[in-house]
């Protein structure tokens, strides 16, 4: 009897672990789909995916910390980084804020569970924002190819915590493991542009990002972001020809009358300079 119970429990345990691993694997695969080359590598899938999953868990910790230790409401995303500073409407719609049902009032276990684990979703106060940073560092320590952790970590360090030098070091470390990651080049460019005001370096990194963005899976919004910063960087450096070149790329990507006006204005300036030069 003991042997049967032992065998059955061991089988159930192995099955549960396998199912759990599979579930986690599928979840993170969908959350953070990586390159096709990596996913199709059999050895990588056997041994490497666990490392990715652990790194993803560590990375998701940063999101949990940002929401004060609570899970972010499902289906809602922070798509625009600048919106992060405020409190969002969907934060009020999580179970902790909902009206309790009659069933829950009557059930002591549900009430107890709620009293222990439910808490309102609230962003970290600005002076506590640094609490999320260790998780980016730990995530890339486990998986140095985790591009998203570098990018978001770099953003937080450079833009939100006012530590552009540390952000640049972190992102450049990421480039060593991910030399083709346009997201990292783009983030470095953003930091040089916005935080360091070094437009020449910003333009250099953004150009690398733009060149690396040739893959079909790169969306228009990301390309637009890079092109705007790139064109503006060259404009600030008074290299209007290059600026026009990138504004034209932007116009071709997302037609916009304001961009067309900008191009016309810059072309007029180029002509004025060249006429002045000939005189």
């Amino acid at each position: 009897m003991k042997r049967i119970i032992g065998s059955v429990s061991a089988a159930v345990f192995v099955f549960a672990v396998l199912m759990l691993a599979l579930k986690i694997d599928v979840f993170f695969y969908l959350e953070n789909a990586r390159s096709y080359a990596r996913q199709s590598d059999v050895l990588y899938n056997i041994f490497g995916q666990l490392r990715n999953d652990i790194a993803a868990i560590l990375y998701l910790k940063s999101d949990e910390y940002f929401h004060g230790g609570t899970e972010h409401p499902h289906g809602e995303e922070h798509t625009i980084a600048d919106e992060l500073s405020g409190e969002h409407k969907h934060h009020e719609d999580v179970p902790s804020q909902r009206q309790r049902g009659k069933e829950e009032d009557a059930d002591i276990f549900l009430r107890l569970d709620r009293a222990i684990h439910a808490h309102r979703v609230q962003h970290l106060a600005p002076d506590q924002s640094a609490e999320i940073v260790p998780w980016f560092s730990l995530a890339v320590l486990v998986d140095p190819e985790y591009v998203q952790a570098y990018v978001v970590g770099g953003y937080w360090l450079g833009m939100r915590l006012n530590r552009p030098d540390e952000a640049l070091l972190f992102l450049k470390k990421g480039l060593k493991s991910n030399p083709q990651a346009w997201q990292i080049y783009s983030q470095i460019g953003d930091i040089y542009f916005l935080a360091k005001k070094d437009y020449r370096k910003a333009a250099a990194y953004l150009e690398r990002a733009y060149l690396a963005m040739d893959a079909p899976d790169v969306n228009k919004i990301d390309k637009k972001h890079v092109l705007i910063f790139l064109a503006t960087a060259w404009e600030r450096l008074e290299d209007y020809r290059k600026s026009v070149y990138y504004y034209e790329k932007l116009e071709a990507l997302v037609p916009d009358p304001d961009v067309a006006k900008k191009i016309a204005g810059l072309n007029a300036q180029i002509k004025g300079i060249s006429v002045y030069g000939q005189e």
Binding site: A130, E131, V133, P134, S137, R163
Partner: peptide, 16 residues
């Protein structure tokens, strides 16, 4: 003793 990016006044990760 771990200091992430020179930031020393973080403690939640240590508690976790």
């Amino acid at each position: 003793n771990a200091a992430f990016f020179g930031i020393r006044d973080v403690f939640r990760y240590m508690k976790e």
